[in-house]
Design a protein around this nucleic acid. Structure first.
Lengths: 121, 121
DNA sequence: TGGTCGAATGAGAATCATTCTAATCACAGG
DNA sequence: CCTGTGATTAGAATGATTCTCATTCGACCA
């Protein structure tokens, strides 16, 4: 399956539209619907991570770690690092418990400018 | 300005579309563009908080605290509590520094089921 | 080999939130 | 009463995502 192959090659978050465009430019006759279908599928099975950017576009990434983790994303170039925060997890649980909430999940992403991009000015 | 008034009355996150619909149902002849324009304006000045939901829709809320904080949102009824996590802030800074990232911001939201909704089954 | 069934696919239409556009309105100043 | 300025409106345009449906592809069977 072409979509999976492409994601395996990419290190950064990509939007469904970007993935579709890249596949087309390689000559693959793949439909936009198929890209979305497969991305949704892979997201469900946990093979890839999804992230909704501030502008509302959903981006996808194949992550090395399969367990729960967060991302440190460069605002300029999109480079992404996986980070984990055990303390954050504990804090989230504690806050939820304190207010009587159950089935708690959380979403946490860090955005900044990476050293390379900062060097470029 | 009608938009500000409405937001002042609402405790929970509302989408721009909802706000527009509510204003219209009250007889206000307000345009959708105006709602968006004012929401963007208020978000810029920090009067309201914005949040992009997992489905890509942007929601708005007038918060009591003007300083940086996070939200604990009920998945069912949308009830929202403001929470703060000093530890999280420190962690974010530390992680960013460790990887050489600058100008770091973060987005963190907690989702769960509130006691009332759980009681309802 | 030829036929059939079902799942997966692709092209394009439909949908939904958001943004843009052009026309309109209120009103202050002359 | 005119005119210019800026905000406002309805509706069209945009862009991402989802839906529809006819078609294709493979496996299986006679």
């Amino acid at each position: 399956m072409a979509v999976a192959e492409l994601l395996a090659e990419q290190a950064d978050f990509r939007s469904a539209q970007q993935i579709h465009a890249e596949l087309r430019s390689r000559g693959e006759a793949v439909g936009l619907a198929t890209v979305y279908r497969n991305l949704a599928l892979m997201a469900e099975t946990g093979e890839i991570d999804t992230l909704v950017r501030a502008d509302g576009e959903t981006v996808y990434r194949r992550c090395g770690a399969t367990s729960h983790h967060h991302h440190l994303v460069c605002r300029r170039c999109g480079r992404t690092l996986e980070v984990s925060g055990p303390g954050v997890e504990r804090w989230a649980q504690a806050v939820a418990k304190e207010h009587g909430f159950t089935d708690v999940s959380h979403q946490l992403e860090l955005f900044g400018v990476c050293p390379e991009c900062r060097a470029e000015g």
